[in-house]
Structures are given as structure tokens and as C-alpha cells.
């Protein structure tokens, strides 16, 4: 069985296991929906109080919010396996993956597909659809394709972050929570247009983690708004590729981590 089919098969197995605990899954999904819903309620309340955010409207922010939450939900749902790596290393269960004749990244990716992220996903979709409709930008095939391209780029980037976080576990399994700064912090950051942040902060989320490239710039092209920071339109359209590059880099790092693991044996 080739790698892609095996991945689908493994993820299918993970879903089947979760369906055995249906009640718990429904609860968690609803909880997730409420948590993200409440976050958006907060955004709405601030707009009700202040009218606008640095020249951006609620509908525009809703699109940013939607794109980042849809992408993060997809990456988070599919990349949960990488979340298990630190625990597996600590318990010695990672060895089992090395004992099977397949790439470790593939096997880890196949460990888990979390269904409960559907809460965040639907929340994001709702924000996205409402935002785009409120802005009245229309739903031509070009726009749908651009939207899909943005989601691919942003999902790859968030997936890459999870791979990086898991890779660090080959060096240390302590203080991994610090990486949440980049994952959950990145989600929080990208829910608002980048131009509202200070310059040093924008740089971190452009060059260290290409969040601006996968969420901010292409969304501008999507809602047809010129960049207050001056990025040209073609750059806005190409930018999601940075997410794929980031993921490729993360996987290269992962291979280095596995090599280190097999040579230190810790």
C-alpha cells in the first residue's frame, strides 16, 4: 500500500476508535464550538464599542478570523499525532514506530485525526462566509480557488508548526508548552490584520513563522483591499506558498530529529 493510501487508512482507523466514545466526542465538539464562539463574541463586542479597528471593519476581521480558524482546525485535527510524540518518547513507545518499515513522519501523521476540532472548523467557516457575504465580494471560481489556496498554505504552516514542536521533543521533552506561543499565539495574532501590530512583532510572524504570508497577505487579495503596508498584489497571491516551504523545512528538521534520536537513544 502506498504512503498516501496508508495515511488515509490509518486516519480512518483513528476516527473509528473515536466513534466508540461518541457521547464524549459530541461534548468535546460542542465545548470547542462554544469556546471559539465566545472568542468571536468578544471580537464583536469590541467592534460594538469602538466601531472599527484601525480602519478595518468587523466583516473584514471576520474573514481573517475565519481563514485562520478553518486552517488551524484542519491542521490541528490532522496533526494531533505529532502532539503525542513527546509522551511516546518519554514512555519509550516511539521505538515501535522505528521498528516498522515505514517513514516515521508518515506513521506519526497517521496516529490521530481528531473529530472534535469540527467545532472550531464550523465556527471559522461561519465567520468566513458571513464576512465575505457582508463585504459583497462575490463567489467567482477565481475567488474560491484563491480561498482554497490560502487554506492549503495556512494549514500547511500550522501543520509544520506541530511538526517542529514534536521535533523539539527529540532534544527535550520539557517546557514544550512554550511552542504554544507560536501555535495558539499565532492563531490569536492572525485573527486580526497584521497591520495593527507593532513592527518587531510583525517581523516575528513574517520571517520566523510565515503567518503574515499565509493569512494576512492573501486574504487582502481575497477581499480586494490594498495592503496598508504596501505589499503588491502578485506577492499577496504567491504568499501562501511560504506555508508549503515552511512545512517542507519542518519535515527536514523532523528527519534530523529522528537521526539524533537513534544516535543518542534517549
Amino acid at each position: 500500500m502506498n504512503d498516501a493510501r496508508l495515511l488515509v487508512r490509518l486516519l480512518g482507523v483513528s476516527m473509528r476508535s473515536q466513534l466508540q466514545y461518541r457521547a464524549s466526542m459530541v461534548m468535546q465538539s460542542v465545548g470547542h464550538l462554544l469556546v471559539t464562539g465566545i472568542e468571536f463574541l468578544g471580537v464583536w463586542a469590541l467592534f460594538a464599542r469602538f466601531g472599527q479597528l484601525d480602519g478595518w471593519t468587523l466583516a473584514e476581521v471576520a474573514v481573517f478570523y475565519g481563514v485562520v480558524n478553518v486552517s488551524f482546525a484542519l491542521a490541528d485535527a490532522g496533526g494531533r499525532g505529532f502532539d503525542q510524540v513527546a509522551a511516546r518518547i518519554k514512555q519509550g513507545d516511539f521505538d515501535r514506530l522505528l521498528l516498522r518499515p515505514r517513514s516515521t513522519a508518515l506513521q506519526v501523521a497517521g496516529l490521530e485525526l481528531t473529530l472534535k476540532r469540527i467545532g472550531r472548523l464550523s465556527q471559522g467557516l461561519a465567520g468566513l462566509i458571513w464576512g465575505l457575504s457582508a463585504l459583497g465580494v462575490g463567489w467567482g471560481p477565481g475567488r474560491v480557488a484563491l480561498l482554497a489556496w490560502i487554506v492549503v498554505g495556512a494549514t500547511s504552516m500550522f501543520y509544520g508548526l506541530m511538526v517542529v514542536q514534536a521535533t523539539i521533543a527529540f532534544w527535550t521533552t520539557e517546557s514544550l508548552e512554550l511552542m504554544n506561543v507560536l501555535t495558539y499565539g499565532g492563531v490569536e495574532t492572525a485573527q486580526y490584520p497584521m497591520s495593527v501590530y507593532r513592527r518587531w512583532f510583525r517581523r516575528v510572524f513574517t520571517y520566523v513563522v510565515p503567518l503574515a504570508c499565509v493569512c494576512y497577505l492573501p486574504v487582502l487579495a481575497l477581499i480586494e483591499r490594498p495592503d496598508p503596508l504596501g505589499a503588491p498584489l502578485w506577492a499577496q497571491r504567491v504568499a501562501p506558498a511560504a506555508g508549503l516551504v515552511f512545512l517542507a523545512g519542518a519535515l527536514a528538521l523532523w528527519r534530523g530529529g529522528v537521526r539524533r534520536y537513534t544516535s543518542t537513544g534517549s
Binding site: 500500500m1 496508508l6 482507523v13 473509528r16 476508535s17 506513521q107
Partner: peptide, 19 residues
């Protein structure tokens, strides 16, 4: 073996993993 699955499912998965 896969904890939540029937034994035979694990065997089938291993068939696919080991080709």
C-alpha cells in the same frame, strides 16, 4: 496492537504497513 480495535483490524493494518 490498536487498543480500541478488534484484533483482526490490527492484523490488517500491519499487513498494509509491512506491505
Amino acid at each position: 496492537l490498536w487498543w480500541d480495535l478488534p484484533v483482526v483490524d490490527s492484523f490488517e493494518l500491519l499487513r498494509d504497513i509491512y506491505r
